[in-house]
Design a protein around this nucleic acid. Structure first.
Length: 303
DNA sequence: AATGCGTGGTT
DNA sequence: TAACCAAGCAT
């Protein structure tokens, strides 16, 4: 059985992919605010945090609000973490807001207020992992990095490896392939990173892929193989109704919409099962998303 | 390495 | 309509 990340014998060469994909990108790239020069490294970094597991359409309005309110890392660093959580609104995964605030504080303290340029420095910031460090270094600073997000992984799985979907978790073989496909020239590499991601986002989508508009359809290993169905373990479903996540979301929504501290009685109304409710609230406090005050009061964290 | 972590649109 | 999906990270 062939490893799912091993290129097919008939897989296209790197050189055969770069030109068509980058040319397609020049013509079809979306005009997103974080792609404009005015966004700067901070705009790129904010957008990357917001886009972790969240669609572009929902990020756009919140991104504009954040950049208008906190145009530099030091501006956000001066705020309380709770204000960041409040301004995060309903983007989801609010720990990202906390981490972005923490990253802004670290940038103000350690990097003179400028988003660091080095991959290792970026990786050391809270909320920044392998993908985001590479994305900021590549998109904001034009550096040569393999930017391996879910879109790129899917494009490589199909075009090169010949399977419908990449593995559940990113494998060493995928990283190796991404590095092998990276153009040598720095500027070309950064264009390739953005272009291959955009191809996955717009054309080579998880469902209803649009091969007729794909610039590399003629070379795509998966299409040439007759687009075989995904085999292997199904991707882990994400149930939500009835989970602690749902309870946490409801609790935090009350605190976001409140001006001052909220009595526990008000929080109790969002979920009728007391054990799960208490567990969810404790979890929010443990995560630093909620601050308990004397007298059974709660608020978003002031520090 | 498997799991937990929000939310809303689409099929 | 329940399931799936959306530029991951931390533990």
């Amino acid at each position: 059985m062939t490893a799912p990340t091993k290129p097919n014998p008939s897989s296209p060469s790197a050189d055969a992919l770069h030109g068509p994909v980058i040319d397609w990108f020049e013509e079809n790239a979306r005009d997103l605010p974080w792609r404009r020069a005015a966004a700067g490294p901070w705009g790129v970094m904010v957008s990357e945090f917001m886009l972790q597991q969240t669609p572009v359409s929902r990020v756009l309005p919140v991104y504009e609000q954040w950049l208008a309110r906190w145009p530099r890392p030091a501006d956000l660093a001066k705020e309380s973490p709770g204000e960041a959580v409040r301004a995060w609104g309903r983007l989801g995964y609010p720990r990202r807001a906390l981490r972005l605030h923490g990253a802004a504080v670290a940038i103000a303290e350690r990097h003179g207020g400028d988003v660091p340029t080095e991959h290792a420095q970026l990786l050391a910031l809270p909320g920044i992992g392998e993908y985001t460090a590479a994305a900021v270094a590549s998109f904001a600073y034009g550096q040569r990095h393999a930017v391996l997000d879910t879109n790129v992984r899917r494009v490589f799985a199909r075009a090169v490896t010949g399977v419908q979907y990449p593995p559940n978790a990113t494998t060493a073989a995928e990283r190796k392939l991404a590095r092998a496909l990276l153009p040598e020239d720095e500027h070309t590499a950064s264009r390739w990173a953005a272009a291959s991601m955009e191809l996955g986002a717009l054309i080579c989508t998880a469902k209803n892929e649009s091969c007729v508009r794909c610039p590399i359809a003629a070379q795509c290993a998966w299409r040439l193989a007759g687009k075989p169905e995904h085999e292997g373990p199904p991707r882990r479903g994400q149930t939500y109704a009835g989970t602690d996540r749902q309870v946490r979301g409801r609790l935090l929504a009350v605190l976001r919409d409140a001006v001052g501290p909220v009595p526990q009685a008000a929080l109790d109304r969002v979920w009728n099962e007391p054990v799960q409710r208490a567990r969810a609230l404790d979890g929010l406090v443990a995560d630093g998303l909620v601050e308990p005050l004397p007298g059974r009061l709660y608020r978003l964290p002031l520090s």
